[in-house]
Design a binder for these strands. Structure first.
Lengths: 244, 244
DNA sequence: CGAGGGTTTGAATTAGATCAACTCTCGTGG
DNA sequence: CCACGAGAGTTGATCTAATTCAAACCCTCG
């Protein structure tokens, strides 16, 4: 993979490089995994690998939806803004996630790199044609959309009805799941800032900070640095989510 | 249609009746609209028309997802519960809406009739087979899922960042859209209770009631009865949503 | 060493929740 | 025909979880 790596100093220019999908890190996890043998060659011809600077915009709400993406590395945030600047982050994407499910002619939300993001870009129109050719790909997307919808409903429950402690516990618990930190003592990486977490959980940055402190003082987590959480008592954390 | 009408007194028994899709009220709006000519006959063989008593459960979160549905008449609510009873309504469905997009083996949420609901039931497995046969149907579902995801993100913005007035204005404005009440003076029907609205908007029933009063006193709406809203100033209502 | 993000902590404020009446239907039955 | 009760909605008084305002406290990096 490293020979396709675009060096950090190349980032500002934002140059895309062609990439043989066969060598891709997320080949077996992303939507591409439903393609077999030579089928991926078709994909390889239409994708570009794009490294992003932290904070860099991928697209903005309202832009023409010309491309869809796979996340190869790092983290990405999706969000919507109100005219006065209030922001709601509707999701974080990590490596192997697909970006571009919810779209019509234009993107319904904005997307930005959080940290260390490298993405794989597909022209939307060409992907549509591939969908007709490979029904398995379409099935996979429908399945992906179904998962997204379930996650969205969980998030609505969180935003509409959960307390600050329940929100943060749910967030950390889901991250732990995603990062296979499945037992106490495990460690979870938070690539995003407290402001991002606040805008994702429908809270203010101060409340997020205070809630971290509360969890820390109650012995459920430790926070060696702002972007690392050690799970001291995963069962207790799960209890705090109030999920069944 | 009337000859397929199951009379109200038959509701408690919940009996399903076969139904020729050709005569269906929502034939041209629901997902069925992508099927042509004789294709719908295949559908007709696997569907049942089921009238529901108000408040009746369609399925519960965790149930095996054996069926998917179209709403033929009336309104349906989808919701999730926390163990202590807090409820978040994740959406209302109305006639021609599809129910069953977000599912794996089991339903991820519960569904109940709100009022006057009549639904059309498909065995999940048989629909899956139809999907393979009619790619257009699958495309339509993917498109439907995309719309749902966009709506879900709007709702996250509402729940995470909007004030009570903004939430109610957004809700009423969306209902007006759906019911083609596109100008001031138009009237909107609210099939659900204040409790339902509260659980949808992430508020309490008292706050919903006070917010209705506020909108009424400011001359934006009139409320002839609890289930009817007259739009006195649709532009002002739209402004209050804070959407662009 | 000093500047500027990002984060934490404290004190004061407030939007919305909670608690508590009270009203308005509407259906039931004496 | 009217009394009654139950469910749904409204309104008022009080409370509180989270926000807002304010001030430090890191770090890292030039």
């Amino acid at each position: 993979m490293s020979r396709f790596q675009v060096l950090p100093e190349a980032v500002p220019g934002n140059e895309a490089t062609l990439m043989p999908c066969a060598a891709c890190d997320v080949r077996d996890m992303a939507i591409c995994s439903v393609l077999q043998g030579r089928e991926v060659d078709r994909l390889a011809q239409i994708v570009s690998r794009i490294p992003l600077a932290d904070g860099q915009s991928i697209f903005q709400e309202g832009d023409e939806a010309d491309y869809v993406y796979n996340i190869l590395e790092g983290a990405v945030r999706l969000f919507k803004l109100l005219p006065d600047g209030r922001r709601q982050i509707t999701g974080f994407l990590y490596s192997s996630d697909f970006l571009g499910l919810a779209l019509k002619e234009n993107y319904a939300y904005s997307a930005e790199a959080v940290s260390g993001a490298v993405i794989c870009r597909f022209p939307h129109g060409k992907l549509e044609r591939l969908l007709d050719e490979f029904p398995r790909l379409e099935k996979r997307l429908l399945n992906e959309a179904s998962n997204e919808l379930i996650a969205a409903q969980d998030q609505m429950l969180l935003l509409g009805r959960k307390t600050a402690v329940e929100r943060l516990a749910t967030f950390l618990s889901a991250l732990a799941q995603r990062q296979d930190a499945l037992e106490s003592g495990g460690t979870v990486n938070l690539p995003m800032t407290r402001t991002d977490i606040a805008d994702y959980l429908g809270l203010t940055i101060e409340t997020v900070s205070r809630t971290f402190t509360k969890l820390r003082k109650s012995g459920v987590i430790e926070v060696p640095d702002a972007h690392t959480v050690t799970l001291m008592d995963l069962a207790a954390l799960r209890d705090l989510t109030e999920d069944e």
